[in-house]
Write a protein that binds this DNA or RNA. Structure first.
Length: 628
RNA sequence: GGGCCCAUAGCUCAGCAUGGAUAGAGUGCCGGACUUCUAAUCCGAUGGUCAAGGGAUCGAAGCCCUUUGGGCCCGCCA
């Protein structure tokens, strides 16, 4: 695996040397070197310092001396650095050939973390009563990116979207339609999900605040929803399906696709809850309270100083968290599947088949969307509840890491952006609120980005027709939005600012995509077709070797990202690739240098870069235009 | 009262899991580079008590403890 080859070679040789010195059990590192310190570094001498009672520098010299006598394939020489580090220099002619040849394969960057096992990843899971806002988008992009990375890391991935179609939020818009006279068709062609969220939901909840007696209507509607046969439930089903359709359009537009939609209403009606409830009782994971403040309830005991959590109320109904337990168990395949499956009404733009659960017994199709492992993407405000689920699932399975809650910090609005939607915060950032109508919708951000990128593209390409320009602008807008959502760590709050998010320079998706356009143009203009049948020794400039090195690090980064469920690792990798190519571009000419052999060698590298960038951007769900 | 997370350059963030070399980017400000494979670019300059204090270590931005500041969570709501 490319750069890993030289690392492995060094590791093996160092182990041989340690064996020779009768030293064992030392966990030294062998890593790509920082710039200016050769190509690969090891800290082995620091770790031996105490045992050998010598300075790291002296030990590095001894090992380096021994290393020079071993057979070397990709290593040219080793060197003991002043600091005590042991640095290695690669034989770049051989290493370049190895890296670049591999990069021409479709499988480049494939790693084996998952051993072809099946993993479920659930993300999105937004109540079907409103349009997606910028906070939801973080969830969706994290989930989609992680699922792409896990596929690359040899997992079979099942992507699920849980549709909470029977909760209070849905009840609220149904109340709006049935009791407060909201029209079924949105005014002036507004998208239906936006209409429900902006108008029906917000204004209905306002009415409750003004007149608390209306709560009665709300409670009744909620009760009717749970009973699938009621007229209200059937009406609600039509409404939520329509909202869902709008939400999915937004997701698909961003290049996000799913395998199956699970409806909460069906989970409730399927009777899964009573099965898991019995199991919980059998395994003594829940207890019945005879007295105290939770008298008459079934509870999960809090760990340590935490409070007990009520699972079943004294009136016999299940609480919010209780509804999550059967679903979590279902995802892990712990329960017999009560569902049949049917294709979703519309085809996904990438033609991946989208299924949905159904309790309909006609033409039963069974499917398996469960996994040996489950990753659930939910923001970290739900840490506490998710910890309870994780710990319960750990007791059902032998290994404890089988259910993972992938948490992330929320998206807030900058003070300036809050002001634009009528919220004055005194310079502080603001939490979004669907109920209060305080949010920035995903569609509106996309539209703004597209407008701006169309303008920027037109400036540069007056010769292009509008459909070409739109295609480019779409790619750049989606890239920009997606990249902004995953380039920082999951535990950092994103303060979303409308103006700043429109930036197309610096560490952004357009920067990375631009490097692809530059590479494409070189390949297009050359009279030769790129091939790996070239003289690699001609690639000796610093910027060339640096670029090859980074290309070679693709697999290591995929592995890192997959092991840590960390999308930002790939974002940084794409950025590093682009920086490195831009430096190459500025320093080295490919075309018109009057040296056919050199041009072909460089062309080969440019194509290697282009293909590797596309593969790594693909993990982020970002495409790159040929021109921009 | 209990729990989780964050704090690194004016601003936004890498680096922390697995301690070791000169703590890196972007952005901003200042100064340069388009008769050239596209300047959505590049080069340079400026900018740091790694929140504070203590501890263990030959060695700490990173590990342990304490404190401060900020965010979030803690219902028989969902």
């Amino acid at each position: 695996m490319t750069f890993k080859s030289i690392i492995d070679e060094i590791e093996n040789n160092l182990n041989k040397i340690l064996d020779d010195m009768s030293i064992s059990d030392v966990k030294f590192s062998v890593e790509p070197a920082k710039p200016g310190f050769g190509d690969v570094s090891s800290n082995v001498s620091f770790l031996l310092s105490k045992q050998l009672k010598k300075s790291p520098k002296d030990i590095a010299e001894i090992i380096s001396e021994k290393y020079m006598h071993l057979s070397k394939i990709l290593v040219l020489k080793s060197e003991a650095h002043q600091s005590g580090y042991l640095n290695f220099f690669a034989d770049w002619t051989k290493l370049s050939q190895l890296i670049i040849s591999e990069s021409y394969l479709d499988t480049f960057g494939d790693v084996n973390v998952g051993n072809n096992s099946t993993i479920v990843i659930e993300h999105t899971s937004v109540n079907p009563n409103k349009a997606l806002h910028i906070g939801h988008i973080r969830n969706i992009i994290i989930g989609d990116t992680v699922s792409r990375i896990l596929e690359k890391a040899n997992y079979n991935v099942n992507v699920l979207n849980y549709i909470d179609d029977s909760g209070l939020q849905v009840a609220d818009i149904i109340v709006g339609f049935k009791h407060f006279g909201f029209a079924l068709e949105p005014p002036n062609g507004k998208k239906f999900d936006h209409y429900c969220g902006d108008d029906v939901y917000v204004k209905t909840t306002e009415k409750y605040d003004a007149d608390p007696s209306l709560e009665e209507i709300r409670k009744n509607v909620l009760k009717e929803l749970e009973d699938g046969t009621s007229e209200t439930a059937k009406f609600a089903d039509k409404i939520t399906k329509r909202v869902l359709s709008g939400q999915l359009e937004t997701c698909w537009n961003l290049g996000v696709f799913y395998d199956c939609l699970n409806f909460e209403s069906q989970i409730i009606r399927s009777g899964l809850w009573s099965k898991i409830f019995e199991k919980l009782k059998e395994m003594n994971l829940i207890e019945f309270e005879n007295d105290g403040k939770n008298a008459g309830c079934w509870v999960i005991r809090g760990e340590g100083k935490e409070e007990d959590k009520v699972i079943v109320r004294s009136n016999g109904t299940a609480t919010y968290i209780a509804k999550d337990i059967p679903y979590a168990a279902w995802k892990l395949g712990l329960l017999e599947d009560p569902f049949n499956y049917e294709k979703y009404g519309k085809e996904q733009p990438n033609s991946r088949i989208l299924w949905q659960t159904t309790l309909n017994e006609n033409n039963p199709i069974s499917k398996n969307f469960t996994g040996e492992k489950v990753v659930t993407v939910i923001d970290s405000r739900q840490d506490r509840l998710q910890n309870i689920i994780t710990s319960l699932m750990g007791k059902f399975k032998s290994t404890s890491d089988t259910y993972v809650h992938l948490g992330y910090e929320s998206v807030t609005l900058s003070s300036d952006t809050a002001k634009t939607i009528g919220l004055y915060t005194d310079g502080k950032q603001a939490q979004m609120s669907g109920r209060k109508g305080l949010y920035v919708s995903a569609d509106s951000v996309y539209d703004l980005l597209k407008e701006k990128t169309i303008e920027e593209t037109q400036k540069r390409h007056s010769e292009m027709n509008i459909s070409e320009i739109e295609t480019i602008a779409h790619s750049v807008s989606v890239g920009t939005l997606r990249y902004e959502m995953i380039k920082q760590d999951l535990d950092k709050i994103i303060t979303f600012d409308l103006t700043k998010s429109l930036s197309l320079e610096g560490n952004t998706s357009p920067y990375i995509q631009y490097s692809h356009a530059r590479a494409s143009r070189i390949l297009e203009k050359s009279e030769y077709a790129p091939s790996i049948d070239v003289d690699f020794s001609l690639l000796s400039e610093k910027s060339e070797l640096e670029l090859i090195k980074i290309i070679g690090l693709f697999g290591i980064n995929v592995m890192d990202a997959a092991n840590n469920l960390s999308p930002k690792v790939i974002a940084r990798y794409c950025y590093d690739l682009a920086v490195s190519f831009n430096s190459f571009y500025e320093h080295v000419k490919v075309l018109g240098i009057g040296d056919e052999k050199l041009e072909k060698s460089r062309l080969c590298l440019v194509n290697s870069f282009k293909m590797t960038l596309l593969k790594s951007l693909n993990l982020l769900g970002i495409t790159a235009p040929e021109r921009m």
